[in-house]
Amino acid sequence: MSTSVETPSPKNSNATDTANDDAALQPRVAGPLRRGVGAKRAVLGAIVPLVLLLLWWLSTSVLGIFSPVQLPSPGSVVEAGIDLAQRGELWTHVGISVQRVLLGFAIGAVLGLTFGSLVGLSKWADALLTPTIGAFRAVPSLAWVPLLILWMKIGEDSKVTLIAIGAFFPIFTTVYMALRHVDKNLVEAGRAFGLSGLKLLTTIQLPAVVPSVFSGLRLALAQAWLFLVAAELIASSMGLGFLLTDSQNNGRTDRLLLAIILLAVIGKITDAILGVVERKAVSRWA
């Protein structure tokens, strides 16, 4: 899982004289190369969205192929955004949605890490809990919605709970699987050097699964956004999901598109932030 870019060193393939091959290994290949690659990727990645934007603009504002109800122009979507922002509604929707996602994600992550570690490390917990957790996972998560609403009413609790359920499973599964697959040789080496129990866990098993934990967290964050929209579409009076249904009912396609774009952008931003943390952690632990 190494993220560092290495240039092949001609000398370290058949390293015999240690003093010399060590020197060849010394200079770690550095930023400029990686940054160059990153910039290139960013430019390439921007091409398709820009082309789509252009096509959108051409088909609506210039050629008028679609009616504003079918597909409003980019300009009118921006205007709708400014309008909502001026009325202060935009920030309410965005703010409450982000809050729900972060809260639900955090709760799901903590529970997922806890249960994943427990079940991954202890044969007892595995035998005791895995069938139950498996059965819960088999329930399509949206099936919980009516029950949650019945129990917790249409307040914040039911939505945050649903999001937490959505975030829980990817984390639980990745942590559990990763702990199962920690290199047996490393664990044995740890035991041979006198580590056991908690010390073995913190010295070898947990560090070994850090990279997988982060990929689990990223999956969970994506799930959290998915479940947010589901929760807000079904029952809410605020949030981006509400903006979607509300706009649909009022025939405001411009606002509807705005909500979709906002979901894409905010989702991508939160994922990118987690991605940065992940890269840091992976380069530290893998």
Binding site: N185, L186, E188, G190, R191, A192, F193, G194, V210
Partner: peptide
């Protein structure tokens, strides 16, 4: 059980990839 009078060097180095050489030796 694991005997602290012994130390093993395995056929593969079995070093912890996330620790530096110094820390790996410290493990012993």
């Amino acid at each position: 059980g694991i005997d602290d009078r012994c130390a093993v060097a395995f056929q593969e180095p079995r070093l912890l990839p996330w620790q530096n050489i110094h820390k790996n030796v410290e493990l012993g």
